[in-house]
Design a protein around this nucleic acid. Structure first.
Lengths: 224, 224
DNA sequence: ACTTCCATACTACCATACAAGTATGGCAGA
DNA sequence: TCTGCCATACTTGTATGGTAGTATGGAAGT
């Protein structure tokens, strides 16, 4: 434990990261009851750092703290998910337009490399890897236009969005035309076709949302 | 104290809100050194709720916690401010476009009422009141298109943006053509002219940023 | 059988003590 | 005078005991 502790700086931070990972990956499904005491035992730390992580996760909307009653992993709020998608669409459309104006060559190369790895992951049907690569792909885009603050904001909202993506992956581990869209996006940036790039991005980020009603019917206990 | 405590639910939450208000209003200027102990004394609570608020404020980027060294009110990061403005522009342009598609009549009336109050505040040169009304105006817009989650995200980013607005207000308590733009925006929504509305909004949210270099030169110790 | 009440076992919240890292000022020695 | 060391007084991080509010199950009364 000491090793991972040093990595994340403090026990509180470690617990925070671990819990967040477990929540987003649905290892801790929505609605799961937690408690400071219980969690402190499983992580072999005192209640203080646990409480600290609870506060942070509650602020991100991943935990719901009911004073003197208990703490639960928050249910997925469909409206919240749609809004997260909405925000991400607006911001990424604007970012990809910026990329069409100017984009550093090395970052473009990184995206190409990422694309190759995506292809490999698809062949191997490695969903988890594909997930990470997709995220990295978009991250590079933000790095290229130097809007990392924006990316970080998106990441926070994505905690909710990602839970539905994980859920969907469990039903249909199919990555559709994400890869193809990524490829087209690079092309659009290269040819500085902002309108095209924006259109592709919009489609790209509209895909996931159509699944939401299906998921809500399949896992009603996970939704608000 | 008990009164305000009940209002905000818990001591930790109270300290959080008070500190946040003091930071955004520059009552606690950027760079100010704080400590859990010191703050706990001024608020007459223990270190625990203070620490809780520190964690939350640090996550929002308003505090900078250096382990075993101290805690300071974060300096204003010009890049961060510009990104906050960028995000707000993108999101609010999209929202006002939605408003042009459909907008409830009662919310439109609320905006009209708000506009009247703005006019009064301008006559009385009440900057603080004008500030609040401007914020309320935009809030109503988000309420009308039911994108409150988006509004809340913007509010968090605005903590940084608002510090520069407060600073600017101290140099030049002039509200320029904000009022006129608000008026035109209502007109655009009423006539369902999305392109016009978007253009006005863009101008509206571009104004403030031009002042940033001036502010940085005038108050260099407040900036990164 | 049904309702009411209460003991009990939870919960988050808060205060406090201790641990460990860091800045600082003064003192000793060259 | 200048340099290096060290005691000391900070800082945040962690652990723990106690408090008040809440859910729950069983016993007593109707």
């Amino acid at each position: 434990m000491d090793e991972t502790l040093l990595q994340s700086g403090s026990a509180g931070n470690l617990v925070y990261q671990q819990l967040k990972q477990q929540i987003v990956s649905l290892e801790l499904p929505p609605g799961t009851a937690l408690s400071e005491k219980e969690t402190s035992l499983t992580f072999h730390v005192s209640r203080t750092p646990v409480r600290e992580s609870f506060v942070r996760l509650a602020q991100e909307g991943l935990l719901l703290v009911l004073p003197q009653r208990g703490t639960r992993v928050s249910l997925i709020d469909p409206d919240m998910v749609e809004e997260a998608r909405f925000m991400r669409e607006q911001l990424e459309k604007a970012v990809v337009r910026l990329a069409c104006e100017s984009f550093p060559a090395d970052k473009l190369q990184e995206m190409e490399n990422n694309l190759v790895m995506q292809q490999e992951s698809m062949k191997q049907l490695d969903g988890k890897r594909m997930f990470e690569l997709d995220e990295a792909f978009h991250r590079i885009l933000f790095e290229g236009v130097r809007k990392m603050g924006t990316w970080n904001v998106i990441q926070q909202m994505n905690a909710h969005l990602n839970r539905t993506r994980v859920l969907w992956l469990s039903l249909d581990p199919h990555w559709g035309n994400l890869f193809e869209q990524h490829r087209e996006m690079i092309q659009a940036i290269r040819s500085r076709n902002a309108d095209l790039a924006e259109r592709i991005m919009k489609e790209h980020l509209t895909l996931s949302i159509s699944n939401l009603p299906v998921l809500k019917q399949r896992y009603p206990e996970y939704f608000k």
